[in-house]
Structure formats: structure tokens, C-alpha cells
Nucleic acid binder design. Sequence first.
DNA 1: TACGAAACTGGCACTCGGTGTCAACTGGCT
DNA 2: AGCCAGTTGACACCGAGTGCCAGTTTCGTA
Lengths: 207, 207
Amino acid sequence: MTTHDRAAPEIELGLRDRKKVRVRAALVDAATALFLARGFDAVTVDEIAAAADVSRRTFFRYFPTKEAVVFARRDEQLALFRERLAASGDAAPFDALRGALLALADDYMARRTQILQERALTRAAPTLLAGDLEVDRAFESIIAEHLVAHSRRTAADQRRARMTAAAMVGVVRVALDEWADRDGDVDLARLAQDAIELLTPIVPRFR
Amino acid sequence: MTTHDRAAPEIELGLRDRKKVRVRAALVDAATALFLARGFDAVTVDEIAAAADVSRRTFFRYFPTKEAVVFARRDEQLALFRERLAASGDAAPFDALRGALLALADDYMARRTQILQERALTRAAPTLLAGDLEVDRAFESIIAEHLVAHSRRTAADQRRARMTAAAMVGVVRVALDEWADRDGDVDLARLAQDAIELLTPIVPRFR
DNA sequence: TACGAAACTGGCACTCGGTGTCAACTGGCT
DNA sequence: AGCCAGTTGACACCGAGTGCCAGTTTCGTA
């Protein structure tokens, strides 16, 4: 029912769209390979385009910036998180949140090496660091939306919901950092669980 | 004792250094005036340099990037915050934190129009937004350092200290956002106070 | 199956942010 | 006065991103 491909990859795409998917994938693959080999800054868009066998101009038709190609995967995570949250509609808001976050933690652990590689890339390039922070804000927006929607209409309550969202993203990020710093050798779900539990006393209404 | 100028602005500067100060100020003034008039992206470095009567190359000798000239003032706030925190050395860590944050809130209210202008600028330019986020992380680092230094050496305790720091920056930012959204017409200190109070139950050791 | 519209692509020229280099200048010191 | 070091401007250069247009490919339709 949605235009999202994940749920229904079987719909016949025309040749035109299949080509587009192929080109996009080729660009992502070429870029990540080059980035991992030589670092983000040392790779030019021309090289990426050449490696994917398209013109430089075409690269910028698929991605608005050089950074965007790095964050393509992260945007998918974001959309997935939003879906999961929306799916568990009538559960207690805080429980839904915990569920979605822990599911995310599982995803991360499953794609461990890839995640760690991406992080290593991000640390080395200041430009990418900025994008990383924006992802956090995006998560915060989703969570805040969710909490606000399930709060009373009081200004004070809504503010508190937004504060809770900000705090939650903060503690979860610290958990993620620790996991990454330990090369993914600890249980991220466990860390995330602890992080979320830490906030229990400040979550409005449930405890 | 420190090399910081604030405490001792009376030391005689040679003609050379006085010039440098003047040029730097001229660049900041010219840049902010142009930015406010036409927005960050619509102003080129050439224009800023011309308005300040120096060459384009000289601009980049004073600031590493076009963004840096916007964040010059914010870096001062950051240093000030760090000093305040270090000053109140033997107070309870959480009290010291609250004190420094509330002092910061007072600063913001005192420079209300300037702060609001800067924020308006930042919102409009995606590049600047990234810088904004980095400032938050810098604050978080300072707070985390402070809390970690006053925590037990346990891994769990230190992690909790870092999580608390992240949460604190989060809730304070929400307070700041609300203040700015209301055009600075509410009491920021009060909002910040509430935000910090919200975290009391999760702060390690004190309650 | 042929054809016209629409989408996609490549190439080119251009703007702007940022850097390396070097020659000319200016203030500081003896 | 004169040397040294720091500062400056000019120029050339690179890479990211954008507007534009002409050529090609795919799609829907007659």
C-alpha cells in the first residue's frame, strides 16, 4: 500500500527503473569501496563516477552531495525505525519506544562490521561527523513526535515529552559509542536496555 | 597566569597585534552585517573581505572557513562555561553544573536579540546547523568530563556519568529551543531550571 | 510496429569555498 | 640604518555543486 519498496520488491519495474536501481547501487558500492580504501576526503566525485561508469553529472542526479551517498543506508534505518514505531500503535508509548530501539540495536549487532566501518569513516572526516549529528536529531524528532502525540495537550507536558526524547537519544548514543569503542564485542541490546531504563523515572506517566 | 586575554586586556599590544585585532573585528562585523542582511549562503567570502578592506586570502588567514566567523562568539561562550565549571571546584558536581548552566541562561537573556538573530541565521543555512550541533557536543564533552571526574572509577558509573551529560545537554537544548521559539519572551532561567530539575532522579549519587 | 513525448544521460561552462606559493611590504629589534 | 620575522595581496589551482543543452533511450499509444 505504501510506495516503500521493502515490503513489496516483487512489483515489476520497467527497464528504466531497473537501470536506475542498478546505477544507484553501483554508485553506492563504488563510493564505499573507495572511501574505505582511502578515506572520504581523498576520494573525488569524479573517481566515484568513473568507477561506477557514469558521468560526474549523473552522480549528482542520484545524490545531492558527496556525503549523501554515505548516509543512504542510515536513512533507511531511520525510515525503518519510524515504521516500527508507527506499527506498535496502541502499546504504551514508552514500551513501543523501547521495543523499536532494541530492535534497532539488534540490527546494528547483525551488521556489526559494516556499522563499525561506517563509524570509522565518519570519525575521520569532519564533514561526515556533521551528518552523523543530524541523524541523531532526526531520531529525536521521530521520538519526540511519538511522545508528544501520546501526551496531554498541556504546554508543560509537551515540553516534557520533547525533553524526554532528547534525553533518550542522548543516552542511547552513549551506549552506542561504548559498544563501538569496544569494537562491538559487548551486547549492544543490553547497553541500550540499561540506557533506556536509566530514564524510566523521568518518563511522564508510566513507571 | 593563563594566556587568556579576558582577565588582562590591559597588556600593551604592539602595533602589529593591534592591527590584527582590528582586522579580525572588521571581518566579524562585516560578515555578520552581510549575513543578517542577505542570509549566510547568499554572501561570498569575496564580499566579506571587500567589505572589511582586506584580500580574500587574508580572510582565510583569520578564519579557517566561512562558518568559523559565525561561531567565533559561540566558542567564547564555551570557554566561559568551562571556566565557570572549573571555578566552582569543590561544590557538589551537580550543583556546580546547575550553577554554570543557569549563569549561561542569564548570559543568553542579556544578549537576547543577538542570540535570536544568530539562531535565525543558523536555521536558514544547513551548513551552519551542523556547526550548531557540534557546539552541543562540545558542551556535552565538558559536562561529561566534569561528571566523570567526580564519579567512581567503575565502568558502569562512568558510563552513567556520560549518559547523564548527554541527557542534560538534550533537555537544556529543548528549553533553549522553546525560549527562542517564543522570541525570548519567557524566562529562560526558569525553563532551564525545570529542565535540569527533571533530571534530578537520574543523577548519580545526589538527589 | 512505428512514432512522438518524456525521461535519462553526458559534456561543458561557470560559481564558490578553500589551499599553496611567492614576491612585496611593514613593524620590531639592535 | 638595516636586518629579521610576520603579514599581506595576487595568482594559480583543486574539488564540490549547478544550469543548460543536445543526443539517446524508454514508454505509452495509435
